[in-house]
Design a binder for these strands. Structure first.
Lengths: 113, 113
DNA sequence: CGCATATTCAACCAAATGGTTGACGGTTTG
DNA sequence: CAAACCGTCAACCATTTGGTTGAATATGCG
């Protein structure tokens, strides 16, 4: 569950991948069309899409010889919640966040990344 | 401004660093104390703190021989906004987001990471 | 002053990342 | 069938990342 956060944040850390997500917000796209505006090889884009896939940020469906890429906005929920918690902590939402916090600390402090 | 997002998301992609942020939510801490629960060298933690610093997620202030680490929750705002935009897009908030979107596309598509 | 404490620096290492190219396997079309 | 197209795979490469250790630099304390 936290491995998942690793993958999501890592996926978002690359500007090309964020751009791809923004492009996909407008409409589903084929891999080749995603690659078109970028100055990099199709294979590179294919890799980026794989990373976005594994992070759950997009899904891919092959129809004929074309593979369609579709954004999965729900995948951002975990990460958004994690991040918002910081802002909310300064406000009032302590109770729910305390639980979240304890749980996180328990899970993570022992992992050495 | 988008380089900044790179750094923030990259900083958040490491579980040790997320744990450090969570720890700092409770209180400001000295570097040594941050390092204590982790099974890794002080130098490693020092590096992690440097990364969190450069991402703007924490600040550090040296008092005496102790360097105090303080969380900077505001730094998450940009990233939170970026992420929330995806969720909100599915809802109604199109107008403001369209602008954000166009601007992002213009800036990013030409950068090759 | 001399020693302990707090933190960083430098050099090093293994593994991961982001890119390339060329070959390959499906699918569609002429 | 053959040619073109879509996308991935494999091998390779340079750079970055996350860690180590040992020395160096402040600072505080008896």
């Amino acid at each position: 569950m936290d491995k998942h956060l690793d993958e999501i944040f890592a996926a978002l850390a690359d500007p090309s991948r964020r751009t791809i997500l923004i492009m996909l917000l407008e409409d589903d796209m084929a891999v080749t069309d995603v690659a078109e505006p970028f100055e990099m090889s199709l294979a590179a884009i294919s890799k980026h899409l794989g990373i976005l896939m594994r992070a759950g940020l997009i899904s891919q469906e092959k129809r004929g010889r074309v593979k369609w890429c579709k954004i999965e906005p729900d995948a951002l929920r975990d990460a958004t919640i994690w991040m918002q918690s910081f802002g909310q902590f300064e406000a009032v939402n302590l109770d729910a966040f305390e639980k979240f916090l304890d749980q996180e600390l328990e899970e993570d402090t022992t992992e050495t990344s």
